[in-house]
Design a protein around this nucleic acid. Structure first.
Length: 421
RNA sequence: GCGAUCGUAGCUCAAUCGGUUAGAGCACUGGUUUGUGGUACCAGGGGUUGCGGGUUCGAGUCCCGUCGAUCGCCCCA
């Protein structure tokens, strides 16, 4: 029935109306909280040379091994659609010498691509909001970033999400821990699931969040990072936790939390929920102090996180209705006057709906469907009649709205109905 | 890549045990009515039941294949 060519590519979606509005709301809230914290917008390409991701994320991570959208361009260069933000931002940082601007507080959002089977809260083209602090080694940078994420969730009315916090230690701590984990799991190799036996070779830390029953029993006995932390790493983690407490950001210690990419050091965290099926992570991130140096830049400490816009959309509360005024000509003769009034309102900054066609009755229907909170009727040679029909919280809100509209139409005669005088 | 479930109008769905011409709401189009808080009335257009094959007197319904979707595994935002 539908020609196959007109179908969207698997895992990529078209959004209008309610869904598009929710998407926009997440981005708006993100921009707003970012502004409060002094983050600046950064724009980086959607496509990078494949090596940018392959080298920085870790060759054995699943994203690199099997999930990248990689292709050769006409010059034979291997390019990849970005599967995450951090690698591209760091590449830009090194390539452009942004070290001179350090510390940088950067924010961005946009599409990412991962070749996976789509399911709830998970798409091949998905979108993230992303915040990074580059060039700050202080634990307060971690704290501020977490407070930003916490505020974003609050702004969107998202509850039931908990911040799970862990440290992966510095390079020495992490290496020692990893070695101990390999030894522990290798000793119980026979009891491990097939998947985890494979992980033992490729990415042993990932065994820690296996969903397999038998694995979980072994994971419960596995060594914890704490005994391997250097004193510096331990002190840093302490400082982050104290800072969060002082900032009033609630968290739980998750001693077995690890992250998917190889570049994380020290702080690692996820905001998780049980409301998204198998995909519990809404926002995830951590510190990646060695990454920029490893890419060939100057030694530069950094922290960051990314949040899935589709997941935030799914969790966010119903957005409050925006005020919208519909201008409705009573008759065909009133049409030019009504168009003038609509334009005047728009110049004054009032969101105004003005239907392209239809009689008065039809336009009332269209206005209702457009979500109009107010109707303004225009008749030739008579006063404009304003009808406040939306659900206003109280009378003072209605009065304020009426006053704002009167101010937008200073020389017009306005008859207000449906509102207290 | 693997598994489970599901594909009927633009959307959401109905159709008894396999049985006559596949229905309804919303949306759309035309008209009637109406001085005003999404809600009146009449009519109309719109379907090879995802696609291909099979079983049967007869398939939207059963079987096989295929494509797609959803959810899960893996992994992650």
């Amino acid at each position: 029935m539908k020609p196959p060519k007109l179908q969207a590519v698997r895992g990529m979606q078209d959004l209008v109306g309610e869904a598009a509005a929710r998407f926009e709301r997440v981005v708006d809230a993100f921009r707003e909280v970012g502004r409060r914290f002094g983050f600046r917008r950064v724009e980086v390409p959607v496509v990078e040379f494949t090596a940018v991701f392959a080298r920085t994320l870790g060759e054995t991570t699943d994203v690199v091994a099997k999930e990248m959208y990689t292709f050769d361009d006409r010059g034979g260069e291997s390019l990849t659609l970005r599967p995450e933000f951090t690698a591209g931002i760091c590449r830009a940082f090194v390539a452009n010498g942004w070290a001179q601007h350090v510390p940088m507080k950067l924010m961005t959002h946009g599409p990412l691509f991962r070749y996976e089977r789509p399911q709830k809260g998970r798409y091949r083209q998905f979108h993230q909001v992303d915040a990074e602090v580059i060039g700050a080694a202080e634990p307060q940078a971690d704290v501020e970033l977490l407070a930003l994420a916490d505020m974003l969730l609050a702004e969107l009315g998202i509850g039931g999400v908990t911040l799970q916090l862990n440290t992966l230690g510095d390079a020495a701590s992490r290496a020692a821990w990893r070695e101990a984990l390999v030894a522990h799991f290798a000793a119980h190799r026979d009891a491990l699931s097939d998947d985890s036996r494979r992980r033992l070779e490729t990415n042993p830390l990932r065994i820690l969040d296996s969903k397999d029953e038998a694995d979980r029993a072994l994971v419960a006995e596995a060594p914890v990072i704490d005994s391997f932390l250097t004193s510096e790493a331990g002190a840093f983690f302490e400082a982050v936790q104290r800072g969060l407490a002082a900032a009033g950001v609630a968290f739980v210690r998750a001693p077995r939390l690890v992250r998917g990419f190889d570049y994380y050091r020290h702080t690692a965290f996820e905001f998780v929920t049980d409301r998204l099926g198998a995909q519990g992570t809404v926002i995830g991130g951590g510190r990646y102090d060695g990454l920029i140096e490893a890419m060939g830049g100057p030694p530069t400490p950094a922290v960051g996180w990314a949040g899935g816009i589709e997941r935030l959309m799914a969790l966010s509360a119903e957005p409050p209705p925006e005020p919208l005024l519909a201008v409705i000509p009573e008759t065909a003769e009133a049409e030019p006057a009504a168009a003038r009034v609509a334009l005047q309102l728009r110049r004054a900054g009032i969101a105004t709906d003005f239907a392209f066609r239809g009689n008065q009755k039809r336009r009332r229907e269209l206005a209702a469907r457009a979500g109009a909170t107010d109707l303004l009727f225009v008749r030739p040679g008579e006063a404009l009649e304003l009808n406040l029909v939306g659900d206003y919280p109280d009378e003072s809100a209605q009065r304020a709205r009426a006053a704002a509209l009167r101010a937008a139409l200073p020389e017009a005669q306005l008859l207000v109905r449906g509102a207290p005088a």
